[in-house]
Design a binder for these strands. Sequence first.
DNA 1: CGCCCCATTGAGACGGCTCAACTTGCGTGG
DNA 2: CCACGCAAGTTGAGCCGTCTCAATGGGGCG
Lengths: 247, 247
Amino acid sequence: MSNVAVNNDTCSHGFIQASCTNCNLRGLCLPLAMDIRDIDRLNDIIQRGRPIQSGEHLYRAGDKFTSVYAVRSGSIKTYLIDNDGIEQITGFYLPGEVLGFDGIDTDNYGCNVVALETSTVCEIPFTRLEELSLQIPRLQRHFFQLMSRHIQSNHQMLLTLSKKNAEGRVATLLLSLSHRYSRRKLSPNAMRLPMSRMDIGNFLGLTIETVSRTFSRLQKEDVISVDGREIVINNHDRLNEICHKAR
Amino acid sequence: MSNVAVNNDTCSHGFIQASCTNCNLRGLCLPLAMDIRDIDRLNDIIQRGRPIQSGEHLYRAGDKFTSVYAVRSGSIKTYLIDNDGIEQITGFYLPGEVLGFDGIDTDNYGCNVVALETSTVCEIPFTRLEELSLQIPRLQRHFFQLMSRHIQSNHQMLLTLSKKNAEGRVATLLLSLSHRYSRRKLSPNAMRLPMSRMDIGNFLGLTIETVSRTFSRLQKEDVISVDGREIVINNHDRLNEICHKAR
DNA sequence: CGCCCCATTGAGACGGCTCAACTTGCGTGG
DNA sequence: CCACGCAAGTTGAGCCGTCTCAATGGGGCG
């Protein structure tokens, strides 16, 4: 059994989460129609470690692949480093989202993973997940689906980088975050960005200056309100239009 | 059993390929260490249809997801169409490469798929593949790996689009194709591009004019030789340098 | 032959980058 | 408590790479 603490009730604050069964993120990282007995079997292989501090790495590119991780609280970014030291952020991960799939192929992780703030994760050892997937078809399907979703969202990101101007890219990111917050029953219109302007620029293929100017312009046009990392979306429809507009 | 023709020997021309067992692409789309009996079981669920003509769609975004496909001969592109009609090519697929994974999540294909030239594919019905994967752990692992590889190569593509200038993007594509040709024991330095300048530009987030100018410049610098779609790489190392250089 | 599509090349426009100055918030230490 | 340094963000001015628009060349096919 996993290394859980005695008290199971601090769930909503995210530090200790004894079981998938009563986790309010279950609808995101597990199949909806999963049998309760099967959830228990999955729960038994999941390990829950100490929190990761802001800036601390969960693992690095090249490390031996052992597990995939579901974010339980906080937020996390993944990034590549090219031969020449060029860094590219490949994704931001919020609670309920699963990362690490890029390590399966070569048996080494492909990305570096670092916490954007104090975060906790559920570690799912992959060989045990594979074994369990052979016994629970619904689970096999689920992980195929999660990976498929990654591929789809990467494709969307290719389109964003390839075809949209600065405004469109920023709008796309804001709407993506908004959507992911609202999936967790949080406000889709008011949020605190977990990442810096630098991270946003790196992710979107823009400089921090351009990101900053774009925020300012969107604010001037009353589409959003910006106060540092606090963002309020004032005009969701308009933001959507901006996002669906080529460069 | 699948709809194979009588004659099994036209293999190298790609039209009829009766069995995975004697397919020279097996090393690419199937696990290397797969038992011959298991290969036969997989072979039994694979369907091989008539060739797809250049410009013909294999399926379209939104179609019901039924199968993944391995390219047997020819070449194929996948592309998205945004709400506003913006098209983004998300990948080129050469013989031995597998596509369609983006449809698993929603049970509808996410991409449009069209042949760049007369091509043949092996259709692998997904529900039967899932069943077989439950019985053959090596196969389950293999498809996790294939999807993982997709995710990794998408990440590389994000870096390319986000951080490289026109030269770097074109160089990256050429080296990717070169690498994939050489995996099939074809020359890594001489190739015929299966796609138009338009396709290249769309894929790389550039206009056809910029692609054309970039080819011309690389030719003037003796890095490559260009004759329409015929490309010769004269200086592999230099191309590699160009590819690893930010904008 | 002539049409059409694809590719190439040139000239000018523009969006985002570079460089630089300045502001703000926060932690540290005198 | 304020002075200070530092990191993050904002804003401005000028530059550069890629896009846009346009003209021309070349190959395949009816």
